[in-house]
Design a protein around this nucleic acid. Structure first.
Lengths: 135, 135
DNA sequence: CGCTGATTGAGAACCGTTGTCAAACCCGCC
DNA sequence: GGCGGGTTTGACAACGGTTCTCAATCAGCG
């Protein structure tokens, strides 16, 4: 509210815990739940509280550095991501993930939305299947 | 496992409770949570256990008579639907929903999946925006 | 009418996620 | 190097949606 406030950014500190979460994410190339990430960190000898893992993931997601989506059970799963808009093809058995881009889909969704008079459009599209290795 | 089993269908009985859930669903044309549906039934003087509401919704969803999807918090929300495969254009302000079909999207997703060797494909696609009335 | 399997409801259990709050920590400053 | 104050953390409780349990009840059929 105070427009004269001289410190607009809350200053995110690079702590050991945040580094551990980032490292764990870098070690995966597919989507993992917060608990799995927490387990991996523990197995590597580090100790980071589960609440901190959640907090850090939420921060990273806000910053656009990780994708967060929900599996079919409604659980949140995370993965580091490229910075362009894209969708995912996820193996529902092993979690193997392929990033896919679909200009056609982008065009189709905005066309449909415009056609119905909807503005300020966003969309979610995820594809689930069984990957070659899991069949 | 017993391929000789003579009664493949478990026979779903049309009970008072199931009728109440169906009636509640018919009264909405947008997505509602199980608890909201349960509340509506209570307000109408009927008494149906929450667990029964969940069970009935799950059954209806299996039968393809209602759509179930997840909002951004991961909660399940339901709505009665037409029996063809389709997606939704949902107003993020008032919840107004338009059912849309996208043969192009269906084709695109299965093409992408096949291309990467994924089988047994399913997908989720929802479009969010602001409807004409809410702008 | 009586049988039998399907269905129900109340509440406990479950589980992912978020809130609480005192202790620990980081960083700029003296 | 030592301080000071806001940031971050972790252990744990709390929360909320969903599912499970199981005895009581019900629906349809002979």
């Amino acid at each position: 509210m105070t427009s004269t406030d001289p410190t607009p950014r809350p200053s995110v500190r690079p702590t050991r815990q945040r580094r551990a979460v980032a490292a764990a994410l870098a070690g995966f190339d597919d989507f993992r739940s917060a608990q799995e990430i927490h387990d991996l960190i523990s197995q590597q000898g580090e100790s980071v509280g589960l609440a901190t893992v959640y907090r850090t993931l939420a921060t990273l997601a806000d910053a656009g550095e990780v994708d967060m989506l929900r599996n079919e059970d409604g659980e949140a799963i995370w993965r580091s991501c490229s910075d362009t808009h894209h969708h995912h093809l996820v193996c529902r058995t092993c979690g193997a993930t392929v990033e896919v881009e679909g200009p056609a889909v982008e065009r189709w969704t905005s066309a449909i939305a415009t056609e119905h008079g909807y503005a300020d459009i966003s969309h979610t599209l995820e594809i689930f299947g069984t990957c070659p290795a899991c069949r």
